[in-house]
Design a protein around this nucleic acid. Structure first.
Lengths: 220, 220
DNA sequence: ACATGTGAACTGCTTCACAGCG
DNA sequence: CGCTGTGAAGCAGTTCACATGT
């Protein structure tokens, strides 16, 4: 099977979000044109993205909303649920543990870890914060699919190493610093500092260049 | 001035993070090689990225850590502080309002907004939650540089429209749905659902393909 | 000798444009 | 006739490789 670009996968997510919305409204079909408009891309891009996985449309008509939704969920691996653990019970970690969107989309948070004795044992939405010291044993027993890293930057790489050694194959990192893992472990990262600095750069270079042309709209 | 790729700006952020770390350790110089290793890229890429903005290194030696740090801060627009407002005092909004990294890097949160009467008037770290109804008036008076959108997906586009009309030129959105703005407004978005689905896709396609080769390490 | 800075080559994502089919 | 699916063309970002400066 061909390698799929990360940009394509990101767009599939966006298409799916809009398809679900359309599904709730009872729309029956949708064109690549419309999908593109809402996803901030072009109709050719939409068709190309889908073409990597098959032919889902009807010529002259467009795509069946429920069928394409189902196909995308299938492609993205969303027909099953995923077992997620969160490491770090600080501001971000606890916000995530309580975030409804996770469970809604089939990402079930099964445990939260921290190393601070004052936090260990406290309860968040039916989850007790566990001691990160025992995380290897837990991973062995429960084989979580995804680990969310929400620890301070200095600790992130160390924890990541332990997770990888224990067998975790997918990490969502919130650390402001780059995480390195073996090639068979997938890492996605959300780096707030980087995003803010991107905005700072855009605002600054706009000023430096006399403010006529901006950067592109509807980013990413 | 040439247009700079978003990927380049993201990497500059990463280089800067590592340079600051090196600065704290008292390192005097650093090579593109070393910078690349920590940033998950190649030395040629590092040199090319920097070359868009000038010549910062010494041949045969490398880069002066403090000098390159300063130059990157300058390029990214981090010599000043930025006035940030947060719209949405839910789980994410309040976590962000209390997040130290913001202020540390010169992004000063000056106000938090919500439309829920039960939240309006409550205090988070010396910030009182204000009524989003009056946000236009406040923007007029205080001219915030960046708005962080942390409202539910359905409301995100509507609020974004109001922010744009009031003059906001940079938005950091946490909405799971795509935000559309005029070309002179820069939008960066953090989409948790998208990231999780990216991991789900990677885990799924790994299985589908027999698990021999994974996707790339140290993502993004 | 060593590491930068950069034009040239390359790779891969995006856009074009049209044949194919409902 | 409209909209999809897709090779071919175009373009942007990455990598190569080497001349240049210390």
């Amino acid at each position: 099977m061909k390698r799929i670009a990360e940009s394509t996968v990101r767009r599939l997510s966006i298409y799916l979000r809009f398809l679900e919305e359309s599904e709730n409204r009872g729309l029956a079909t949708i064109s690549s044109q419309e999908l593109a408009r809402r996803g901030g891309t072009t109709s050719a891009q939409v068709r190309k993205d889908l073409s990597f996985f098959g032919s889902f449309g009807k010529r002259g008509l467009g795509y069946s909303v429920p069928e394409l939704s189902a196909s995308l969920r299938d492609i993205l691996g969303l027909r099953r649920t995923w077992n997620v653990i969160i490491v770090g019970a600080g501001k971000i970690g606890t916000a995530l543990a309580q975030y409804r969107g996770f469970r809604q989309r089939g990402f079930i948070v099964s445990a939260v870890y921290d190393r601070d004795p004052r936090k260990i044992g406290t309860v968040w939405e039916s989850l007790t914060v566990r001691d990160v010291a025992g995380i290897e044993k837990d991973i062995d027993a429960a084989a979580p699919d995804i680990a969310v890293l929400a620890v301070p930057g200095e600790e992130a790489q160390g924890i990541a190493n332990r997770l990888v050694k224990a067998g975790v194959k997918a990490i969502l990192s919130f650390a402001p610093t780059q995480i390195h893992t073996p090639a068979d472990v997938t890492v996605r990262s959300v780096n707030m500092a980087m995003e803010l600095e991107g905005l700072s750069f855009a605002l600054t270079s706009r000023d430096r260049n006399g403010a006529e042309d901006g950067l592109d709209s509807a980013s990413r």
